[in-house]
Computed example of a mutant assay.
Amino acid sequence: MFDRLEDLLIRYEEIMSELNEPTVAEDQNRFRKLMKEQSDLTPIVEAYKEYKAAKQNVEDSLAMLDEESDEEMRELAKEELNDSKARIEELEKELKILLLPKDPNDDKNVIVEIRAGAGGDEAALFAAEVYRLYVRFAERNRWKTEMMSLNENGIGGFKEVIFMINGQGAYSKLKYESGVHRVQRVPETESGGRIHTSTITVAIMPEAEEVDFELNMNDCKFDVFRASGNGGQCVNTTDSAVRLTHIPTGIVISCQDEKSQLKNKDKALKVLRSRLYELELQKKNDAEAEARRSQVGTGDRSEKIRTYNFPQGRLTDHRIKLTLHRLDSVMDGDLFEVIDSLIAADQAMKLSNLNDEA
């Protein structure tokens, strides 16, 4: 590990030297790549430098204990020695995590798809609430959201909603949200007060850029139609809605959120690229089944990952056996404890796998 850290430190210093050259800024592609690499290496290099400083402190404290006869100074040296040893242990764990292979999609924006599952109107209402949960979580992270496609059920629920979240590290935090989300509560239409169980599915896909996935436009069929809605200004009077069919896979995407046919077409293509990119990622992950499990559970959408129990005010994430009794704040976008726990469990599993391989 330390040989690799030394190599990374040398590479970091090379990058800093290159960035100081006046000619680098003239080549924007090279400049961006260097800045990205420098940004990725900075936390590793800073932790490693602190680790080396702590090691030096240990040596200095031991030398002082050998040479110093003054009892007060010896006590200070012992205190410094213990503090430095404890910090070294912490930094070794931190460095192991920092050196774990990074998901190349972690810094990407995400496209989120939420669909009502079992439970009819109640599932659609919950789909709308989970959509608002993610929008509020995005706001708390200062990310931006953009509606891509929406299919409402007429009473405030969403049969399906597709939207984009734009923000640094969005995929790294939200990728664990893919799967089946179950809700248990008494619907407003239930006169007997019985608790009903409904489900929705959530899919989190990294935004695929043209450099990530090459889409053959000959495989795409576009149809235009008049947008539907609840009446008034929401309904377009022109054929601006777009239905995109990807012939090889049979994937169909409809977008009618924009009044411009061109904008709806662009949004449909974004969603299609991300779906196809996710399929490619899934093929790769299926070929490495063990690596797939390192993403906290299998990541399979058929897997029930979480239960929201409203009568008890309880959220349970089944993959890591986490239970929180503050469902109201979670539904208001405070997902941080859940996300942090999932990331920690993922890192612990990857570290365990590395130790097993070693």
Score class of each variant (00 low, 15 high):
residue 114 I to D: 10
residue 243 R to Q: 15
residue 132 R to Q: 10
residue 95 L to V: 12
residue 191 S to L: 15
residue 351 L to K: 07
residue 226 R to S: 08
residue 75 E to S: 05
residue 42 T to H: 12
residue 111 I to D: 01
residue 234 C to K: 15
residue 288 E to Y: 10
residue 186 V to K: 06
residue 170 A to Q: 06
residue 153 N to P: 08
residue 49 K to Y: 03
residue 276 L to R: 09
residue 165 I to D: 02
residue 136 R to T: 01
residue 198 S to Y: 06
residue 39 S to R: 12
residue 127 A to Y: 08
residue 145 T to W: 01
residue 294 S to V: 00
residue 224 V to H: 13
residue 255 C to E: 05
residue 78 K to E: 10
residue 237 T to Q: 09
residue 27 D to R: 12
residue 276 L to Y: 14
residue 91 L to C: 00
residue 209 E to S: 15
residue 86 A to W: 09
residue 74 R to F: 05
residue 213 F to M: 14
residue 124 A to N: 12
residue 335 L to K: 03
residue 77 A to C: 00
residue 97 I to D: 14
residue 130 V to H: 04
residue 88 I to W: 13
residue 150 L to N: 02
residue 200 I to A: 05
residue 185 R to W: 06
residue 258 E to N: 06
residue 112 V to L: 12
residue 251 I to R: 00
residue 39 S to K: 13
residue 273 R to E: 03
residue 80 E to V: 02
residue 218 N to A: 09
residue 113 E to D: 12
residue 357 E to G: 02
residue 132 R to A: 05
residue 165 I to P: 00
residue 52 K to I: 01
residue 204 I to R: 04
residue 252 V to F: 04
residue 338 V to W: 05
residue 123 A to C: 09
residue 116 A to N: 13
residue 341 S to T: 12
residue 281 L to D: 14
residue 194 R to F: 08
residue 266 D to V: 02
residue 244 L to Q: 11
residue 75 E to D: 13
residue 77 A to N: 04
residue 190 E to K: 08
residue 249 T to D: 06
residue 108 K to E: 10
residue 124 A to R: 12
residue 9 L to V: 00
residue 307 T to D: 07
residue 237 T to L: 00
residue 282 Q to R: 12
residue 46 E to V: 06
residue 107 D to A: 06
residue 312 Q to A: 03
residue 290 E to H: 00
residue 281 L to F: 14
residue 280 E to W: 12
residue 38 Q to Y: 12
residue 317 D to Y: 13
residue 355 N to T: 08
residue 74 R to M: 10
residue 308 Y to L: 07
residue 249 T to C: 06
residue 207 E to I: 07
residue 136 R to D: 02
residue 318 H to G: 13
residue 57 N to Y: 05
residue 200 I to Y: 01
residue 266 D to Q: 14
residue 155 I to T: 14
residue 15 I to C: 04
residue 256 Q to V: 05
residue 149 S to V: 01
residue 200 I to S: 07
residue 172 S to L: 02
